[in-house]
Design a protein around this nucleic acid. Structure first.
Lengths: 236, 236
DNA sequence: TGGCGGCTGTGAGCTCGCTCACACGCGTTC
DNA sequence: GAACGCGTGTGAGCGAGCTCACAGCCGCCA
């Protein structure tokens, strides 16, 4: 089927399955399904039983946690190739975050049973999983660090640079972010208020270091932004 | 050897190896070694190549990150049975945190080679590792959440309750923490300043909800502390 | 075409908790 | 016993960034 070819393509590009043999990929692809997701949709919520694993084909999903007052922080943002929802499948605990779609797209869904079976039959899958989790842990650790130490400016600068890594660079060295990001999404991702992000962006716009190109943020003076991000430089 | 019996005991009690067969345990025990660690000792630092994995036999190790200004936040605290240092062995990246001994004790050290070999020969080890990493990720996610949302009081209350989980309960429902914790260690673990922790503890002592018993903190009115941990408003 | 919902910009407070600057007690080491 | 190191207690002052309260814009749909 042509459908399968698409899927195998995607899976092969994802963090988790990239190292797998074609047969293993085919096995996984045939056990999952693809579905559309639309902006605002909630894929799962805290406390839900974990009955599936997801891989993003296109679009963007935010994994976040809420306070009872409705404040939200994004723990991770998943884009093409990103795999999430696997924690519950590994340890059987209920979901510990909410997953909400912030940019419409397509999603690959793998059932609990299929995942466990794949884990047990193909050792390379569990090795790949270990790497995925390691990377995620490092990212989260960095998030903890920046939330607790850095001021808003550096945190935002770092986020923009991280997003820019998958953006397009123009010939004059400017970088256009790969999609539209609302200020409130940016705020959630750095644990700040929407207003503060707005003010910081306004300031940088006035300074001419960033700008807008049809709704997308453009990093104009990347060096300056790097300075801001490193301001509180942590050795590495 | 009697030495091996000790080790196997410990490993069998640790997060990571508890599910293993006696043979696998013996294999691991014979490939690692036990050593003493003293307070203040640094086991590894950010940027070091990761050449070993550690399991705590006794004592306590803090995994933390620093700013260039010397501010520190603890990402995790490892006590008996805790396994750490495995990220680098999995993905080959350099260490991304510092590991420092805050309570003297004994440590089990497993070389990179022995660990990789164990991973590859015994599938149940990689499954156990997956669970360890999942749990760690959940803990870290909760840390992110509380650091970004909660005020100092609730953060500290939560930490005390978490530590108390392995403490001893008296007949009147009080809980004695399992060891001495300096205020500055507590501060690192909730991303706060030592002074603020001191003031909060003083306040609670005055209110009679916590106290001291030969250097160890005692939770007297656990219900009140639970209230504090849950919501961050109410009177003061 | 008017109204409504979502995103953005900006100012005015206010507050939590950080830094700084001490003072005190206790255990070790000369 | 003096002199340190280290953990602790406490107050003054200050500032980043939060909340609150609007106002302007745009796109969409009835």
């Amino acid at each position: 089927m042509t459908e399968d070819a698409d899927l195998i393509d995607l899976l092969g590009a994802s963090d988790m399955f990239e190292a797998l043999s074609p047969e293993a990929l085919a096995l996984i692809a045939s056990n999952g399904r693809k579905r559309a997701m639309k902006r605002g949709e909630v894929l799962f919520s805290v406390g839900d039983p974990g009955d599936a694993l997801f891989a993003v084909c296109s679009g963007r999903v935010l994994l976040s946690r809420f306070t009872s007052e409705g404040k939200e922080i994004a723990l991770a943002a998943m884009e093409r190739g990103g795999v999430f929802g696997e924690l519950s499948l590994i340890d059987g605990e209920p979901r510990s975050a909410d997953a909400a779609v912030v940019e419409a797209g397509e999603l690959f869904v793998l059932s609990r049973a299929a995942f466990r079976q794949a884990l047990e039959t193909d050792v390379s899958i569990s090795m790949a999983m270990l790497e995925v989790l390691s990377r995620r842990l490092r990212v989260t650790n960095r998030l903890v660090e920046s939330v607790s130490f850095l001021e808003l400016g550096p945190r935002l600068a770092r986020l923009l640079l991280a997003i820019a890594a998958s953006g397009t660079t123009t010939e004059d060295g400017e970088i256009v972010l790969p999609a539209r990001y609302t200020q409130s999404e940016l705020a959630k991702r750095i644990a700040a208020s929407r207003e503060s992000v707005s003010k910081q962006i306004a300031q940088w716009s006035r300074d001419g270091v960033i700008g807008q190109r049809d709704g997308k943020i453009v990093l104009i003076d990347v060096d300056r932004i790097n300075e801001w991000a490193d301001d509180m430089e942590l050795e590495l």
